[in-house]
Design a protein around this nucleic acid. Structure first.
Lengths: 198, 198
DNA sequence: GTCTATATGGCGATAGAC
DNA sequence: GTCTATCGCCATATAGAC
């Protein structure tokens, strides 16, 4: 802890660039320039690009955990849980735009590692299905579909953002952001409509 | 047309590897090995890696075009159009499992190129919004959300498949496929419920 | 058309002075 | 701790023999 100013500058720069361009397309030189320091210093503080990336990623991924945890809070009614989950999940993504993309990539590369990352911070999605099934009074199959639909609706727009922005907003990212305003609430309504009885 | 056997071998190898690993992570050497020929031959038939990639991508992406076209068929009622679109889109993906991932990667790499690819085959998503807005009797903003939600629900499970299979089905891909059975119809119902008046 | 050998350039990483 | 200079590798691409 208690990071040095330089270390902090590096992390800020790395986060920003990884967010914008992803790990593969980001050059160490760019991070150094953005941080206003030399390329060699990156390797002095973090041994490799991979380690630097993992560091910034874990930091960001950790922010998702609270929103996942809320799903398992059986003291709240299911409607409330879903509402909070969607709201917090979207907020975190908005502040860490590269997270969905990274997760997509990591899903293809090593899904087991990603699962380990989740469980190691105390959230096991496998335990989620029985919990949700009971809460909605339906089968685990339907609980699975509930969570699948929710994540789909929340995450996809951000993964598709470059194309969506280009096609529908002529490259204007602010217009894209504006189009997504209030989407949290609309998704919530749509999802909740699927768990009403009948 | 009438490709030479070597050309065909290259295309088969390239398609397979690009789909599995993406353009950035696939090496020309790997393609040559998979095709059973030499690296230099790749450049003899296709001038560059970029050109080879675009060639295979266009081929695969072309399979999606018919399902997109059906959206613009104003002779059909909107409910029918959405139903057919979802059904055909899912069918194509089921038969080309890596296509969503392929497209995801291209979205990040070069969205403008992807858009050009769509329009060049006669489908312009920009013209879709006014069409859909009229059909559902709502604003273009709501038409945008309609198409966004639909694609999200259709595509996401396939992009997330490796993680989903690992977490919820302990690696059993058949169980995953089974869980998605009938999803076409469930998505359709959900989507159609959003375009009913009020 | 197909191969071997090599040019060319970029990037991550390191050595070593200060 | 921070810098300059450079190494070493790998990937795309090309030259040229056969």
């Amino acid at each position: 802890m208690t990071e040095t100013p330089t270390e902090q500058k590096i992390l800020d720069a790395a986060r920003k660039l990884f967010m914008q361009k992803g790990m593969g397309a980001t050059r160490m030189q760019e991070i150094a320039d953005e941080a206003g320091i030399n390329k060699a210093l990156l390797h002095y503080y973090f041994r490799s690009k991979q380690k630097l990336f993992e560091h910034t990623f874990k930091e960001a991924f950790g922010h998702l955990q609270p929103s996942l945890q809320v799903l398992t809070n059986i003291d709240l009614p299911i409607e409330q849980r879903m509402r909070s989950f969607i709201s917090e999940y979207v907020d975190v993504i908005e502040q860490n735009r590269f997270l969905p993309l990274f997760i997509m990539q990591e899903i293809q590369r090593d899904p087991a590692n990603l699962y380990k990352l989740m469980t190691s911070s105390g959230f096991d999605p496998r335990k989620l299905l029985p919990l949700l099934a009971k809460a909605i009074g339906k089968s685990e199959k339907e609980a699975f579909e509930l969570i699948l639909n929710t994540i789909s609706l929340v995450v996809f727009p951000y993964v598709g953002q470059p194309l969506i922005t280009h096609v529908f907003f002529h490259g204007d990212e602010q217009a894209f952001a504006q189009a997504l305003e209030g989407r949290k609430e609309r998704i919530t309504s749509l999802i909740l409509s699927t768990i009403k009885n009948q």
